[in-house]
Design a protein around this nucleic acid. Structure first.
Lengths: 247, 247
DNA sequence: GCGAAAATCCTAAGAAACTAGGATGGACTT
DNA sequence: AAGTCCATCCTAGTTTCTTAGGATTTTCGC
């Protein structure tokens, strides 16, 4: 199963080059799965982390794990308890399920969730996070019975994950995102929203920029309208998402 | 100058493998510059996009462009006017300075800013955005007199940019970021902050979760304290930054 | 020079958020 | 059994935000 060292480098970039020529969602999926199979991954789940009010299923880019497993996982609300998932919040870097078992002290109920996956054909897997330009956090999770998780395989997987995610997203979201036309903010509106994002009040912003606080309010209201937001918390989130301000 | 096709793939992953063994900031910079020189890039600027109140210079990961050019750029407030920079907000993907000239209708004053760079040794360059887990948007900007900007070079550059950025960040920020201990939110606090982030009022959240609005207020206040925020706009930004909620 | 867009300033009432106090019950740990 | 953390509920006074009206000046492209 394991390749020679050089083999990994070559494979990964060959994969990327071929991937970039594919257009349709189905072609892209097939290409990704074929590549992952070479590493011993039978399954792949790729999803963006759902917002409040969104269901897990609506946020899937791709999934080929057994449907009844997903149903079970979803109905038991495992996504809030699974240590492999909660680790996402703590760990910047790619990690494997076995890394989590080794490095964290888990409750019995948590270990059970990981063990349960075996009954559906997965003993170990990788978790790779991708953060897109718009701040959307996505997770690329290949798994299988006996995947290759060597350091060199992980480096190659990281490249594969980034490009696979972009390709899936390109195929699935391109049109959808173009629909969401967003009215651009003016420079002053942007400037003021940056101060709003760090928690300044309109009075404080007025003092900082040497303008009346009513003017600040005015700019914020204009920005809210352009960002399609009723409260400034959401306006800030939207401004980040649209790239008007950054974190 | 241009390599054979296969050469790009091999170079890029060789670069990554060698980069991962380097520890110090200076070693890493030297390695990156050497690699970029192979593509015809003499200069590199790498920075995170400054928040309100932060200066451009504090957000630099690396820069070797002439100091007087940076001073001029900074004092003229070019960062708000430079079309190559404003394009960052619109364009998800890597692009070159010449792409911007070709695809956008620019004012004379905007073209001047790009042209001015020639006097300091850069005729063209690439802009590559990297968004980290914590939502920080960074920009990796190599430039030079006659860089190789062929499609295959761009693919390789994307890999180089991602890993270079991570390496620089690892070397510069590791300790700094560990200082910023953040008190984790409870599941309920997280859940409520997600609703705050989409602009719901406490009354509305109370109705959704079937609890009293005063309880919602209480949870938000606890979350604000843990996130070190005085207003909920900033609390939302912090929660995103710490990975407690996602966009 | 004209028109459009941007930036500036204002009032006033009602809604929402912030602050500073509380209190109770349940789950889990030691 | 005691202690800790979490989730739930409450009041009341203060500040900030939201909304719905205005108006004037500046800037920039044509």
């Amino acid at each position: 199963m394991p390749f020679e060292s050089d083999e990994y480098s070559k494979r990964a970039l060959d994969f990327v080059e071929r991937l970039q020529r594919l257009k349709t969602y189905d072609e892209i999926c097939k290409h990704i799965l074929k590549e992952l199979a070479q590493f011993g991954f039978n399954y792949l789940t790729s999803f963006s982390i759902p917002q409040a009010g969104q269901s897990f299923k609506d946020c899937m880019w791709f999934n080929n794990r057994p449907q009844d497993y997903i149903e079970r996982y979803s109905s038991q609300n495992y996504v809030l308890k699974d240590p492999v998932v909660t680790e996402l919040r703590k760990n910047l870097n790619p990690y494997s399920w076995s890394d989590v078992r080794r490095t964290r002290e888990l409750k019995k109920s948590e270990v059970n969730i990981i063990d349960e996956a075996r009954e559906w054909g997965s003993r170990d897997g990788m978790m790779l996070q991708i953060v897109t330009n718009s701040g959307l956090v996505s997770c690329f999770c290949p798994c299988g019975l006996g995947p290759d998780l060597s350091p060199r395989a992980r480096t190659a997987l990281e490249v594969i994950a980034i490009y696979s995610h972009h390709a899936l997203r390109r195929a699935l979201v391109q049109n959808q995102r173009d629909d969401v036309v967003h009215i651009p903010l003016t420079p002053r509106e942007r400037e003021i929203m940056q101060w709003v994002a760090v928690g300044k009040t309109d009075d404080e912003i007025g003092e900082i920029l040497l303008i009346a606080s009513t003017t600040v309010t005015q700019h914020v209201e204009n920005a809210k309208r352009k960002l399609d937001a009723l409260r400034r918390t959401y306006a800030v989130v939207q401004a980040i998402r649209f790239g008007e301000i950054s974190l």
